[in-house]
Design a protein around this nucleic acid. Structure first.
Lengths: 221, 221
DNA sequence: GCAAAAGTGTTCTAGGTACACCCATGT
DNA sequence: ACATGGGTGTACCTAGAACACTTTTGC
């Protein structure tokens, strides 16, 4: 038992974990096995330990749910309406993360609870204020697409420019001109031609590129 | 006394309150009258009540310290390193606010503690992790200057384009071309010519403009 | 009449957009 | 040989940057 002179709220982190699969932007959801909202889908998340940094708590949740580490993670917003959780006052520091396309198979099924990727275009009814959180995360991601290199964090270690263009087209929802797209992304710092090529189909092999992912994003223009 | 099965952190809000005076960007600081950091300067802020929304807590602090209401306020970031406060685990949801030039006289001296405006260019040693908070707030403000109408929230109800240009020049730290500046700001939605003019000195009177401040900012370009 | 800030257009430049064909491979 | 995605250059257009003089007032 812990005692305080004044009432204290509980602190959680919730994470909007994005990935791209089947040419759709997807988020990882957990089916709740306890009340409240038992049986409803919710964002992965949990309580922050009393000696744990907020970002560490988010990284821990991320690892527990997906098994991935070393990916892009950014604080999104803190949600603290007094009745957002029916049990007690809970303030949630929301983060969002980007999982590269090739790392998502690892284990979306850690503990007993069911975890699944859901297309952003058709999400189920979410628990708590999680619809707001997802919505804000999508807005932030869409905005950063225009003025940063954030999209590169969806890419595997080596990728072709065609793959990268499909990522942009999927998130923005519009087709892009191939020549203009290539001119633009090749001006980004950190994109390098490996010299290697990949043959995958009955067409000309594509050059493979890498991105210097220092875990950060670069601002452009 | 309040009891919990698990330890709970305390939650505060800290606010970076900006204004412009004497052609300088300034922030409001409070001299701490209690330990820890007694006698040091710190951001205004305080504990969030258990049934209080985060933004309401920030607005309450803002009103207590400056007497102003209805000004621009935005959540900045949540700071939660385990030892950022030596007393107990304290997580701070930081906000920043913009006080119009003509409203800052009201009362920067609410309770017993001393409150003063300090130029951003020469801040004293701040308590806790407040240097980081101020620094992030300045970065955010500078960034929003480029792609939003946030600067208009520094303006009084009626202002001249010359005054507005000096605000931009002060925050950005560079002189701007008068003709290009006017062309640009007059494309913003919400800026209207009142038809009135102001005479204040031995020169041609200036047109007075207003801004439709719905409390929000508009994104441009 | 002179000092001081308000007010006003045009030219130039650079970055973004539009656009069509050849290349290397698998079947 | 043909289908498939990879790879490349130029012309146009628009938004931002550079730039100088006239107007209205107070003293």
């Amino acid at each position: 038992m812990y005692h305080y002179d004044y009432p204290h709220p509980a602190i959680t982190t919730d994470i909007v974990i994005f990935t791209l699969a089947e040419n759709e932007l997807k988020v990882l959801l957990i089916e709740r096995s306890n009340e409240p909202y038992k049986g409803r889908w919710a964002l992965p998340g949990g309580f922050v330990d009393i000696d744990e940094d907020l970002e560490s708590a988010a990284l821990r949740e991320l690892k527990e749910e997906t098994g991935v580490t070393g990916i892009y993670l950014e604080q999104l917003y803190t949600f603290g309406k007094p009745n957002r959780d029916p049990r007690e006052r809970v303030i949630s520091v929301a983060y969002y993360a980007l999982v590269p396309i090739d790392k998502l198979h690892i284990k979306p099924d850690s503990d007993a609870s069911k975890a699944e990727w859901h297309a952003c275009s058709s999400l189920p009814d979410l628990a708590f204020d999680h619809p707001q959180i997802v919505s804000l995360a999508r807005d932030r991601l869409a905005a950063k697409m225009d003025y940063s290199t954030i999209a590169l964090h969806f890419m595997p270690d080596k990728f072709t420019l065609g793959e990268l263009q499909r990522v942009y087209e999927t998130i923005k929802g519009t087709p892009l001109d191939k020549r203009n797209f290539r001119k633009r992304v090749l001006t980004f710092n950190g994109i390098n031609d490996t010299g290697e090529k990949r043959r995958d189909g009955k067409h000309r092999p594509a050059r493979l590129y890498t991105f210097n992912t220092t875990g950060t994003i670069e601002f452009i223009k």
